[in-house]
Design a protein around this nucleic acid. Structure first.
Length: 343
DNA sequence: GGTAGACCTGGACGC
DNA sequence: GCGTCCAGGTCTACC
């Protein structure tokens, strides 16, 4: 086959076949962790709940209903595959042996990614405010193992269509990430991106004008200016967190609202063109964009501190009504479509 | 405080 | 195959 004939679809198809082959090859002999999630946790539902499950280094395997992912450790990265056993426990298989400290780090990263620490009371409180999601049990939103990755993924989703976000994340992993034993790449750490050249980010990762902003953000994480413990401290108000986030380079009102939900703070909407489209097409709102934004705020106000989840699951349910259950979405479809306008 | 235009990439479209 | 247009959120300059 001539290289020029290979489109994005071909690359994606190769990715998944390559990944599955390598995992099958390497999983023998690697560490296996058993994790007891909360009783109401469902891997397929709770992973396929937010678009980041499609972005590298994440890969959802539709046929196996399991998540592929490379986790970063100080020494070297390790690829893992997460599935859920019949008894509800999560099984995490790695492509190499992990020592005790690495196993402990892996548990922390997986717990953050899958929101395993989310209290049952929190989800119950959400369902009391918005009972539409009680039957399906929705309440968790998939995120990254680290806040840094969530922030960079948010920046790569601004001012670009979804396929562009997919490509930027793939290239960030392939160009700046580290290769695991099985050949799959990790998401680059803040330390790594802080010393990456502008030209590499723009020329090879194709992040465009986001290059300087990504490096500045990475430096702020390395220096400790961005403190996740403070951002998730319940005694710190949502207004204070929003004010801090919006002061960061490349983070505006939309990105700030989105990062807040990734921090487990759901009191603000992250309004983008998709939200406005949702307001028009699904909620029947009319008027200028400004009028619709006002109407959206009023519409979700009754959901109080849970309003992002109410909005998001409504949007997600609309996607699923068009394309079927998210855990059955083929990767290529989600990489190209994934907006109500395209589905 | 509100608004216009620049910032980039990649896909769609017309020729 | 080439050129043009468009979508997308943030930032800066200006009123």
């Amino acid at each position: 086959m001539v290289v020029g004939e290979r489109g994005a679809g071909y690359e994606l198809a190769c990715d998944i076949i390559f990944t599955e082959y390598l995992f099958t090859e390497y999983l023998m002999g690697g560490s296996v962790l058993k994790i007891h999630p909360p009783a109401d946790f469902e891997l397929a539902r709770d992973v396929c709940s937010y678009g980041y499950f499609v972005l590298m280094p994440n890969a959802w395997d539709v046929s196996g209903q399991r998540l592929f992912r490379v986790l970063e450790f100080d020494e070297k990265p390790s690829a893992c595959v997460i599935d859920q056993c019949e008894d509800g426990k999560l099984r995490v298989r790695f492509d190499r042996r992990l020592d005790r400290a690495q196993q402990s780090q892996a548990r922390v990263q997986i717990s953050r990614m899958l929101c395993l620490e989310m209290a049952r009371d929190d989800i119950r409180a959400f369902h009391r405010v918005d009972p539409r999601w009680k039957k399906s049990g929705r309440g968790r939103l998939f995120r990254s193992p680290t806040l840094f990755e969530d922030v960079i993924k948010t920046v790569t989703s601004c001012n670009v269509t979804w396929p562009g976000t997919v490509n930027m994340n793939r290239r960030l992993c392939e160009v700046c990430g580290r290769k695991s034993a099985s050949g799959a790449y990790s998401f680059p750490s803040a330390k790594k991106l802080a010393r990456t050249r502008l030209g590499t980010l723009r020329g090879r990762c194709r992040v465009g004008y986001r290059d300087q902003r990504i490096i500045d953000l990475a430096k702020l994480f390395v220096s400790g200016h961005v403190d996740e413990a403070w951002l998730t401290d319940p005694s710190v108000s949502d207004d204070e967190v929003f004010k801090f986030l919006i002061s960061l380079p490349g983070i505006g009102p939309y990105a700030s609202g989105n990062i807040m939900q990734l921090l487990g703070r759901y009191s603000r909407l992250a309004i983008d063109t998709e939200t406005i489209r949702h307001g028009k097409a699904v909620l029947g709102m009319v008027g200028t964009d400004g009028q619709i934004i006002k109407a959206l705020h009023a519409h979700y106000e009754p959901f109080g501190e849970h309003k992002f989840r109410s909005y998001w699951f409504e949007l997600w349910a609309h996607y699923e009504s068009k394309a079927g259950p998210a855990h059955l979405w083929e990767r290529e479809l989600v990489s190209k479509a994934f907006t109500a306008a395209n589905l």
